[in-house]
Design a protein around this nucleic acid. Structure first.
Lengths: 110, 110
DNA sequence: TGTCTATGTTGACGCCTATCGATACAGGTG
DNA sequence: CACCTGTATCGATAGGCGTCAACATAGACA
């Protein structure tokens, strides 16, 4: 249903102009982080001990529970987070390769 | 009218959960790059020789001229680009500090 | 002054999205 | 089995956003 956005995607933004296809795929990742609530959720997961967090650990961002679930789904669809149910709770963790790819896009910035 | 989004904003996303204020400001930058057309325009400017580009050099992205102008304005408002008119043409260049700040947000990704 | 070119702005349209309440599902406990 | 808790989905609504055509503005040049 939702394939990862291709982790090793593109060269740094400063190297050459992105093609339409590259831009389409890459923009999805940036777009996913372009919402304050999602950014807080993502940061909460990424900074949580063990690299993963239960929804119950991070859902205190000032919006309703369905909205939190909606945003976590968006982050999953963008390939930034993965989820796994273990018993009662669902745990989210960051997708390291995708995050590294995004960092590389901005890395050669100078 | 449009103040820069505070270049040295926040620690890496993996260090600690972002506050609501931090997320609000940071999300604007990611959001600005969350559109394929804007991403192509930004990449075209960033990769252009001399670090700057005339609109006429980069406006071939498959949308109308007003739309290009609209997206360039969004990138300006997000603090990612600056513009300057020199004679007939308007030149855009990347704001290095802001780009570096974004890179830092994703840098410690591991 | 007038005219041409290069950009920016305006107004409108349609789509996308963030948000919520209500509801459904999954898993644990009794 | 029934019940409770944690999480996801559904349906609806309001606002934001990408896009365009039309118009406005700025500079160059005659």
């Amino acid at each position: 249903m939702l394939e990862p956005v291709a982790a090793p995607c593109c060269p740094p933004l400063t190297e050459r102009p992105l093609s339409a296809d590259e831009a389409e795929r890459t923009a999805k990742m940036f777009k996913a982080l372009g919402d304050p609530v999602r950014l807080r959720l993502f940061s909460a997961v990424a900074s949580h001990e063990g690299g993963e967090a239960c929804v119950c650990d991070i859902s205190d961002v000032g919006v309703s529970q369905p909205t939190v679930s909606h945003h976590l789904k968006k982050l999953r669809e963008a390939g930034l987070l993965t989820s796994e149910r273990r018993g009662t709770w669902v745990y989210y963790r960051v997708e390291p390769s995708v995050l590294a790819a995004m960092g590389q896009l901005l890395s050669a910035a100078a």
